[in-house]
Write a protein that binds this DNA or RNA. Structure first.
Lengths: 225, 225
DNA sequence: ACCAGTGTTAACGTGGCGTCAAGATCACGG
DNA sequence: CCGTGATCTTGACGCCACGTTAACACTGGT
């Protein structure tokens, strides 16, 4: 089932979208401002995002940039008829499509289908393998030496973010925000504890990590080996 | 260079697109009806297609279907304002975007960029390469001779600013402000120390820098080699 | 030869990281 | 309703390395 995240502060639009999307067998998640929208994006992992530019708390273009920093999930922007420069800015920031209000529901649904279709030939390899263990993102399973490794929910959440961004450095703020939530962005302690847990369960030599690397002062990085 | 095929029977639009696209360094190929358009598609192998639905010889939706039979090249549909059902049909037939006439050229160009960006395999890797090392801005990673170079947060911050402004002179004030903060604008010492660090880690001959150049009295410049 | 701007080096204090372990909280079955 | 694990939170501590700083050497221009 395709999951859609709708970020919009207008109740009427939110309601209309929820009804229409649900009727067409989409799973709908909603948020009503930019900050919670970014959080929902990380938590719900939708297949496509419908984003209203006129949010109360953030500039819509900044929301797009924030999302494009770590995922290429399709973004369809919704906005009141306005300057052409706004469209250009949104599209150049990484939006995939731009629909002006008032819009026809059928058209939006068609654009939604187009966006999902485009993204579907998945660039996602759901299973990541190293020399010592494998991570199956779809099945949420980790195997080492042929047998499953038991991970707690928090451990898995942390590993998932790191593996999804494999090769890239993930800042502490981003990790805390995506695994624990908005308000935990300063609790650097959690990271140290849980990275240690993961290393003990996955690394061949936990004291000298090969995959879960620390970048002092900046964050952590999952190296594919 | 990105190659664009424009299929349109209106000379004025064709002309306007050709001028604007050429000015922006696109390679432009044109066709004025559906049949020759399909032929041009196969022959020219464009990176993106701009297709007017109102062609004299074929229904636009059939053109889209014909193309989608063998390639997933992005298609941006152009059409006179009309029924919503037409948009839906075009999008469901495999079009990627739909722009109604009259349209703003800037918006069309932005949608074009979005379509090309989406289609390109790696959504542009912001990797800057020199003969001696590479800097990956997204992954926050620097590699030299195939292996990663460890940079401290300050070193990375400094390098990032310089690389983002590659080729251009960056003043000391600007560097200090962006890496250390507003109130450090006079601490010229920091720059000398950390530029030295970077040169030791990156330059083939640190005493005679090739990439991290000093502009006496002004600031520093990153030269791509 | 002098000066201003620059490069180099080393010492010191602190912040961040890994580690451990004990309390708090939750989930589940008796 | 309580007990028992498992999981999550929180705090403490040692250690290393990063940032800061200062002292000194160098270079080109006048």
């Amino acid at each position: 089932m395709t999951r859609v995240l709708v970020i919009d502060d207008e109740g009427s639009i939110l309601r209309a979208l929820r009804i229409n999307l649900t009727a067409r067998k989409y799973e709908v998640v909603t948020a009503s401002d930019g900050a919670s929208g970014l959080g929902a994006m990380a938590r719900a992992r939708p297949d496509v995002l419908i984003l209203d530019l006129g949010l109360p708390d953030m500039d819509g273009v900044d929301v797009i940039k924030g999302i494009r920093g770590w995922t290429s999930t399709p973004i369809i922007v919704l906005s009141a008829a306005g300057q052409e420069s706004t469209k250009v800015a949104a599209l150049d920031a990484g939006a995939d499509d731009y629909v002006t209000k008032p819009f026809g529901m059928d058209e939006l649904l068609a654009r939604l289908r187009a966006a999902v279709r485009r993204a579907s030939p998945g660039p996602d390899e759901p299973v990541v393998a190293t020399e010592d263990f494998t991570v199956d993102l779809a099945a949420k399973r980790v195997a080492r030496d042929g047998t499953d490794v038991r991970l707690t929910p928090t451990e898995w959440g942390l590993l998932e973010v790191l593996v999804r961004n494999r090769g890239r450095l993930v800042t502490q703020r981003q990790l805390l925000q995506e695994v624990w939530g908005e308000q935990y962005q300063t609790e650097g302690n959690y990271l140290r504890v849980y990275v240690a847990h993961l290393r003990r369960k996955l690394e061949p030599d936990p004291s000298r990590p090969r995959y879960l690397l620390t970048e002092p002062g900046m964050g952590y990085r999952f190296s594919c080996g």
